[in-house]
Design a binder for these strands. Structure first.
Lengths: 154, 154
DNA sequence: TATTGTTATACTCTATAACTATA
DNA sequence: TATAGTTATAGAGTATAACAATA
C-alpha cells in the first residue's frame, strides 16, 4: 500500500502534503460530509434528518415562509420542498396555510408538536456540532461560523 | 408572499435573523452547495466535475494512492472510486498499476495527459474559488481554509 | 403571460451485499 | 479468514418538464 492510513481520518501528516488540503471546495465538501453524517445520526432518534430539520427549524422561526422561500433559502428545488413538507405535515409537525394575499402560494406554519420537536432537535444538533468541532476553540468556532455566514449571505 | 427575496441570495437581512444562520451544519451545507455548483460549472468545459477533479488532483500529487486510499480520503465508498477511475482511465488521464507488494491492490498513477488537464483544472478551480469567496479578504480566506483543514484532519 | 405548488420522471449520488483474486 | 477491487442493485438526493390554479 502506497499510503499508510490510521484511524477514522487517516494519516493526516501524509495527506496534508496533498494539493487538495489547500483546496477550499474540497475542504468544504469533506467537512460537510462529516457534518451531515453526524447531524443525521444525532437526529435519527427524532425521526428527522439534516434536511428536514432545517425546514422545521426555519418554519419554527416566525418567518412564515412560503414553499418557494424555503426552496431558495435552502438551495433546493421547489419539488423537493413539496416532499419535505409532505413528510413533516404527515407527522403533524407543520401545516400548509394558503396565503390570503396570493392564493397560489402556501405559507408553512409549525404546530405545537413541531415546536416541541424542534427544541429537542436543536439540542441534538448543538451537541453533534460541538462534537464535530471539538478540535476548535470556542473563538475559532465562532470565527468559522462568521466566515461561512459571510459567504452564505454575500 | 411572507418573505421578500431579491437577487440570487435572497434578502439577507430577513434570513439572517433566522436560527439557521447560526447553525454550523446548515452554513456548511449551503456554502458547499454553492461551491460544488461553481466548481462543476468551471470544470465542465474540461470534462471534469468536482469529484473527478479531486481524484485526478490527488493522483497527480506524488502519493501513488491505492483505490482504497482514495476512498478513505475522499469519504467515498470503494465502489464509487471504481467508477471514477474507470472514467478517468477511459479518458487516458490515469492508469491502474498493480501494487508489486500486494497484488490485490491497485495503485493509480497519472498520465502526462492527466497532468496537463489537472493543471488547467487547477486554474479553473482557483478562479471559481476566488469568485465564490470574493466577499472575504485574502486573510479571511486563508483563515477559513485553515479552520476547515483543522476540522477535516482532526 | 407568468408564477406557485404539484406530479412524474430521469439522472446522479450513495450505500449494501456478493463475487474474485489475492493475502 | 480477511482484504482490494469489482459488479449489481437499490435507495437517497437532485434536476427537468409539464400541468392546474391563480396572478
Amino acid at each position: 500500500m502506497a499510503l499508510k492510513l490510521n484511524g477514522e481520518n487517516g494519516d493526516a501528516s501524509q495527506w496534508q502534503n496533498s494539493s487538495m488540503s489547500n483546496d477550499l471546495s474540497f475542504l468544504l465538501a469533506r467537512v460537510n460530509a462529516d457534518s451531515i453524517a453526524s447531524g443525521n445520526s444525532a437526529l435519527k432518534r427524532l425521526g428527522l434528518k439534516a434536511r428536514s430539520y432545517a425546514v422545521l427549524s426555519l418554519v419554527c422561526d416566525d418567518l412564515q415562509p412560503s414553499q418557494r422561500d424555503l426552496a431558495e433559502f435552502l438551495r433546493l428545488d421547489p419539488s423537493q420542498v413539496v416532499t419535505l413538507i409532505d413528510e413533516l405535515e404527515g407527522k403533524q409537525l407543520v401545516m400548509r396555510q394558503p396565503d390570503p394575499s396570493d392564493r397560489r402560494s402556501k405559507i408553512v406554519i409549525p404546530t405545537s408538536k413541531g415546536h416541541t420537536l424542534r427544541t429537542e432537535a436543536e439540542a441534538a444538533i448543538a451537541t453533534a456540532s460541538q462534537q464535530l468541532s471539538k478540535s476548535l476553540t470556542a473563538e475559532q468556532r465562532k470565527n468559522l461560523a462568521s466566515l461561512l455566514r459571510t459567504l452564505a449571505f454575500s
